[in-house]
Structures are given as C-alpha cells and as structure tokens.
C-alpha cells in the first residue's frame, strides 16, 4: 500500500526537511519552533502551519512527548498473541483496542503451527500485572487460546528516521 503523499506526489522537498527536523527532539526553550524554523531556513509561521496540517491530515499521528516506559514505572511489556476465529476478528479487535493498557492492536497472518492472528502490546508495572490484564481481556472477549511473550532483552529501540 502506497501512502497518500507518494500517490499524489504531494511531498515536497520542504516537507521532507520539516519531517527530518520534527522526527527528532525539540530544543527545550521558550520558542522551540522558532529555533527549528531557523535551522530549516523558513519562517516560524510557515513551520507551524505545515506541522498543524500534517496533524490534521493524519501524516503525523501525534506531536508530543515520548516517554521511556521503564523510567516512568511501566517496567513490563508483554506481547499478547491471540487465536481468534477469522469471522470474529473485528469484534474482538475492537474490544482489545478499548483497553487503556493495550498500546498496539493488530491482526497479522497465522500459520499451521502458529494460530495466533491478533497481537496486542500490554504494558504494566510487572509481569504479573500483564498476566492479569490478559486474563481480563480473555474474559471480555471470550478468547481463551493465547500466549503472552515477554521481552527478556531489548536489543534495539529507536525512532524511525524518515528521509
């Protein structure tokens, strides 16, 4: 699936330069966007206008603070994988997505030896906390066949650099 920008050839060089700057970290100063606009060589007004339009059009999912989960006290994350009958995925996915402890919820392909087609990332203060949340999700959806895979080691965690 090609994105909207690419299809319409709407992504201009100036947008790429703005995206490159905004995907990083703002300077913690009173007028951070004036500093960024200066780096790009456009007016602050132009930068704010374009940034807001990316938000309105959904190219930008959010502009905000990204926290380090561990430092913020959310020490455990479990990848819940669920075996959901094909015809029931929409209903179950919507219920799972409504849990505030679930950050990501996607349907993905299953295989003969891997029946799990719904994926949820579950965050809590502890592994026990993740198990409790998974049990609540199981009761709320009626899906009984699932696994919770904990990350025992983090090898890489970066933000994507586009362009």
């Amino acid at each position: 699936m090609k994105g909207y920008f690419q299809k319409k050839k709407m992504i201009e060089e100036i947008d790429k330069r703005i995206i490159r700057e905004l995907q990083g970290d703002i300077p913690l100063e009173k007028s951070p966007f004036a500093v960024i606009a200066g780096r790009i060589g456009i007016s602050e007004e132009e930068l704010l206008k374009r940034a807001k339009s990316y938000l309105d059009k959904g190219y930008m999912r959010k502009f905000g603070a990204i926290l380090l989960h561990r430092e913020a006290g959310f020490k455990a994350n479990g990848m819940g994988v669920w075996d959901v009958p094909a015809g029931d995925v929409q209903r179950v996915g919507e219920i799972m997505a409504s849990f505030s402890e679930v950050s990501h919820c996607y349907e993905r392909p299953s295989f003969a030896d891997w029946p799990y087609n719904l994926f949820t990332m579950i965050h809590s203060e502890s592994e026990d906390g993740c198990h409790e949340i998974a049990e609540r999700i199981s009761r709320a959806t009626g899906i009984k066949r699932y696994k919770l895979l904990f990350s025992t080691k983090e090898f890489k965690k970066t933000s994507m650099e586009y362009f």
């Binding site: 699936m1 090609k2 994105g3 909207y4 920008f5 690419q6 299809k7 992504i11 995206i19 905004l22 995907q23 990083g24 970290d25 703002i26 913690l28 940034a51 990316y54 059009k57 959904g58 190219y59 930008m60 999912r61 959010k62 502009f63 905000g64 603070a65 990204i66 926290l67 380090l68 430092e71 913020a72 933000s159 994507m160 586009y162």
Partner: peptide, 16 residues
C-alpha cells in the same frame, strides 16, 4: 523519563 518531544509520523501515510 521523557525520551524526546517531537513528531510520530504514520509511516504508511508517508509512503513507507
């Protein structure tokens, strides 16, 4: 506690 303050883009909408 804060890793960064910035944009999170929708990779699909950017054509990725």
């Amino acid at each position: 506690i804060i890793r960064r303050i910035g944009a999170s883009f929708d990779s699909r909408k950017l054509g990725f």
